[in-house]
Design a protein around this nucleic acid. Structure first.
Length: 278
DNA sequence: GCCCAGGGAATCG
DNA sequence: CGATTCCATGGG
């Protein structure tokens, strides 16, 4: 199916228009990623796959500064999941009244396809932690041992991190998570953990592979699958989701949401955190 | 001082 | 098995 999406090169950059259900603030500020920052004038800047990007949402659409059509097609379409029809997802889940409401409150969220190793480490760092501090630790990690490209520090590679010790990571103040990050790096660098292989495994087997990393349980594994490997069948259940599932659905996700569990998870997460629960 | 934060490992019974 | 406790760190 062809998604309604048009692009046009302007003097400022590439303009994406005629696209539904894509709000950059909702997408970049919903707790799925930790390395995008909002600028004073309301733009968003971030760096993915070594490319620095500046975005702004206007009445005309979304403006991608400093990018090309080639880069847009090869990187950003996939990263922002632009080929998926979120309108259809929202339509199908609106069969359930609660999901209809949850979806309508954040219908511009898109599930990012982040770099797998970054997603894995980010959610290792997220455990028993809060979002501002997660962002701080990740920022310090990039500055400590990530490559600097065009003045922006990238997320470190598994190869670099695999050679480090918990003492080396002391400056990022990640506490007990330092040795988890290093174990993840070693297993990814050696290909004992192979994202390309895991990506296509049945959910249960994919989880079993990722949880071989010390400090990775089911929740972090599911976040890695959803936000790093594009597996929208993964349903990460953190404390908020667990509370919401009991409170809203008596523990069971409505049938209509099952094909899009991961996306719906993000709607519920947003709903629980903004509206609150009974 | 206390509590909690997009959890997981270790150690119980 | 399930339940509890500890893990570093920082903000409220």
């Amino acid at each position: 199916m062809v998604i309604n999406m048009k692009t046009q090169i302007t003097k400022d950059g590439l303009l994406l228009y005629d696209i539904d259900n894509f709000n950059i603030s909702q997408t970049l500020d919903c707790g799925q990623c930790f390395r995008w920052t909002k600028t004073d004038d309301g733009c968003w800047s971030g760096t993915v796959y070594g490319k620095n990007l500046l975005l702004s949402q206007t009445d005309d659409g979304i403006l991608f500064y400093n990018t090309t059509k080639e880069e847009f097609d090869s990187i950003w379409v996939k990263y922002f999941d632009l080929e998926r029809n979120y309108g259809e997802v929202l339509s199908v889940i609106s069969e359930n009244e609660t999901l209809k409401k949850a979806g309508s409150l954040c219908s511009g969220i898109r599930i990012l396809r982040q770099e797998p190793f970054e997603a894995l480490c980010s959610f290792i760092i997220s455990q028993n932690n809060n979002i501002p501090r997660i962002k701080g630790i990740i920022d310090r990690l990039c500055r400590l041992c990530g490559e600097c490209k065009d003045g922006v520090y990238q997320f470190p590679t598994a190869n670099v991190l695999a050679k480090m010790t918990p003492e080396d990571l002391a400056p990022i103040r990640s506490g007990f998570r330092a040795r988890y990050i290093i174990d993840a790096a070693k297993k990814c660098d050696s290909k004992e953990i192979d994202f390309e292989l895991i990506k296509n495994l049945p959910l249960e087997e994919a989880r079993n592979e990722l949880t071989k990393i010390v400090g990775v349980g089911v929740k972090v594994a599911d976040c890695t699958l959803l936000f790093g490997l594009g597996r929208i069948d993964a349903f990460p259940a953190d404390v908020w989701i667990k509370r919401a599932m009991q409170s809203l659905f008596d523990g069971n996700l409505p049938e209509c949401a099952l094909p899009y569990a991961g996306i719906v998870q993000q709607y519920i997460y947003h709903y629980a955190r903004t509206i609150g629960l009974e």
